[in-house]
Simulated assay, not measured.
Amino acid sequence: MLKEYHKGHIFGVPVADGQVALGQVIAPLASNFLAAIHRDLIRADEADVLAARLDTPVIFAETMDFKLREGVWPIVGSHGVPDSIRLPNCTVWVEPPGEYRMQSIDGTLDSSAISAETADAMRHQKSYAPAFIEAALQALHGFRPWISVFGEIILHSGK
């Protein structure tokens, strides 16, 4: 049976050797969700999983929800989304009329155009496979080689 999830749910992403990184659902998006995943690893069987810091994510990415809904990334609790975590705005090319617009994570377009310079400084909305997120966490913690493409979702990695 598929599990339901909601904004604020905290889940564990398996990394290696019985260790998980805690993530939080920031925004449900149809069959995807925006995830904030945190650097610290804890034991999967640790009793107080909510003691980890949730205010400074190391990974901030949109991903598909199937590992969450199937329980591979188990939901371990719920907590309000920290005020320090803001929903991202992305850039999108609108044709016609052939201009850049700001797009919120839920797909809503701003009605006014933005400059090409502003658009160049923004990211395009992109979704990452759950396996990519797991691999990036493994590389971040030295369990597999680091590849530069992981830098697309790592915020403050020190890499």
Rank of each mutant, 00 (worst) to 15 (best):
G8Y: 11
M122A: 01
E134N: 09
P74M: 05
G98D: 11
Q19H: 14
L2V: 10
V72H: 13
R86A: 14
A121Y: 08
R101A: 02
D55L: 02
P28R: 06
V92H: 02
A129E: 14
G77N: 06
G77D: 06
V94I: 15
A51H: 12
P28M: 09
S31A: 10
S112T: 15
L68P: 04
V94G: 00
R101W: 11
G18E: 13
D65R: 02
G23N: 05
K159R: 10
E95G: 00
A139N: 09
T56P: 00
I153Y: 02
I75G: 00
R43V: 07
S31K: 10
T108I: 11
H9S: 08
L87G: 01
M1G: 13
W73M: 04
P57R: 00
R43P: 12
I153T: 12
G12C: 07
A30L: 11
V25K: 01
E117F: 03
A139Q: 06
A129V: 04
Y128Q: 09
V72Y: 15
I154R: 03
P88R: 03
L41T: 05
D17K: 13
E152R: 06
P96G: 04
F11Q: 00
S148F: 12
R123K: 13
V13D: 04
V94R: 08
A16P: 04
E4T: 12
D17Y: 13
R69E: 15
K159A: 15
F66Y: 12
V81C: 02
S78I: 12
A136I: 03
L22S: 02
A135E: 13
P145E: 12
H141G: 06
F11K: 03
Q19C: 07
G18Y: 13
A36E: 07
L41M: 09
S115I: 08
P145N: 14
K7M: 10
L2E: 14
C90Y: 15
W93S: 04
L54A: 01
T91C: 03
L29D: 06
Y128K: 04
R144K: 13
I133D: 03
W146S: 08
L109S: 00
Y100F: 15
L50R: 11
V149R: 13
T108Q: 12
L2D: 15
A35M: 13
S111T: 14
K67M: 12
L50F: 09
G158C: 08
R101E: 07
F66A: 08
H79G: 00
H38K: 03
Y5G: 03
G18F: 12
L109I: 08
D65P: 07
I133A: 03
P96R: 05
M102S: 05
G142A: 09
P97R: 10
G23Q: 05
L50P: 01
K159C: 12
S111K: 14
P130K: 02
W146K: 05
N89M: 10
L34V: 07
F60R: 04
M122I: 06
L140K: 01
E4C: 04
S78G: 00
P74G: 05
G98T: 06
A121T: 15
P145R: 04
L137H: 01
Q125K: 11
I154N: 03
S148Y: 14
E99G: 00
D120S: 11
F132S: 05
L54M: 11
V13G: 00
S84N: 10
F60I: 01
L87W: 13
L155H: 08
Y128S: 08
D40A: 12
